[in-house]
Amino acid sequence: MSASAMSPDSVAANRHVGAVRATLLCYRVLIRQIVSVGRLAALGALGAIMIVVGWVVGVAGADRDFGSSAMLRDGAGYADAFGLIVIVPIISLVFAAASLGDARDDGTLVYLWLRPMGRAPVAVAAAAVSMTVALPLCVAPTVLGGWLASGRVAGSGDLAVGILTAAALGTAAYSCLFVLLGLLFRKAVLWGIAYVLLWEGLAVGLGDFAARLSLRGYARSVLAHLADVDLGFDPNRLATSIIVLACVSVVSLGLAALRLRHLNVD
């Protein structure tokens, strides 16, 4: 029996797997799909490059004795330019798009479709799987790279906390958004890269209004506030930035669950 032959109403009528149990079941199935040596090696190498370059930037700045304020600004700017615009969205995209995309392509998603459970746990599990793998690969190099680029001057501890918070919130929001993207488009990675490069990479430079339509703009505001560093723009309020990033995560998962409800899988 194919999953496409099952209507949403018939699935709902026979549903008996609880939400928590269903989420754990989906998590165990999906985590095996996205973790591969090739992906971990390639994206881990990207993070290693950021750390090494950050160290070089920090050593160069210390030799020139720019002063602690300038070094902190350099560290924050480096974490923003390399971490928040390259590392965080790209790594989140790769794993989030694969979380359901790989399962859909190899037929694993049919197995989940035949289970008597709701669709929301599938979306939540997909996002959780993506974040499980993406968070350490995104946060660690972004924090270390930015901290090293600051030359470890006084105040670099607060900078590291700001980078960590911004990178973690950004990774969560991107992961949820790209899970949805993976359900809307077959070649989600290509669409996601176009979005990251053409919009996220440019929006902040187009002015404050455009930055408010960019996830990077809010993540970068969190960094600016927590690290108390002037990044050369008018940041959003800290509370507003956190709420927007959280809302993007929740709304994206809600839309993903809705999309899953109406998706036919053969």
Rank of each mutant, 00 (worst) to 15 (best):
A140F: 14
V88M: 03
I49N: 08
G44E: 04
S92W: 04
T165I: 08
P121A: 06
V57S: 03
R104D: 08
D80P: 01
A172V: 15
M71K: 08
L112W: 09
S150N: 04
D106F: 10
V56S: 09
T108S: 14
A168Y: 07
V88L: 07
S69H: 15
G118V: 10
A97S: 14
S99D: 00
A154N: 09
A149Q: 11
I85E: 12
F82S: 13
A149N: 06
P89M: 00
G67A: 05
S68F: 09
A125S: 13
G83P: 03
G170K: 04
V59K: 13
I85G: 01
A126W: 07
L169Y: 12
I91K: 00
Y111L: 14
A103R: 02
R115Q: 14
V53A: 13
R104S: 13
V94Y: 09
G170A: 11
A134Y: 04
I163Y: 06
A48T: 11
Y174H: 15
S130K: 03
W113S: 14
T132Y: 05
D80F: 14
G47R: 03
L84K: 02
R152F: 07
G101T: 10
V37E: 00
A154L: 08
A62L: 14
G151V: 06
L169K: 06
A128Y: 02
L109Q: 14
T108P: 06
A45S: 14
L93C: 01
G38W: 07
D102R: 15
R104A: 13
G170Y: 07
V57G: 00
A166F: 04
I85F: 15
T142G: 12
G146S: 08
A154P: 06
G157F: 15
G145T: 01
V88R: 05
M50R: 02
T142I: 08
G67T: 12
D102P: 00
I90P: 04
F95R: 01
F82H: 10
V124C: 05
M117C: 09
L144P: 00
V94M: 12
I49M: 13
P141N: 13
A98T: 02
I87P: 06
V129P: 05
V110Q: 15
G58S: 08
I51W: 00
W55F: 11
G107R: 14
A149V: 03
M117H: 05
A140W: 02
L72H: 00
L177H: 01
A60R: 12
L164E: 05
L164V: 04
S68K: 14
Y111G: 12
G162K: 06
G58E: 03
G170R: 06
A98R: 01
D158I: 08
A160V: 08
V52P: 02
M131R: 01
G146A: 11
A62R: 15
R73A: 10
G83A: 04
C176K: 08
V37M: 03
R73K: 13
A41V: 11
V53D: 05
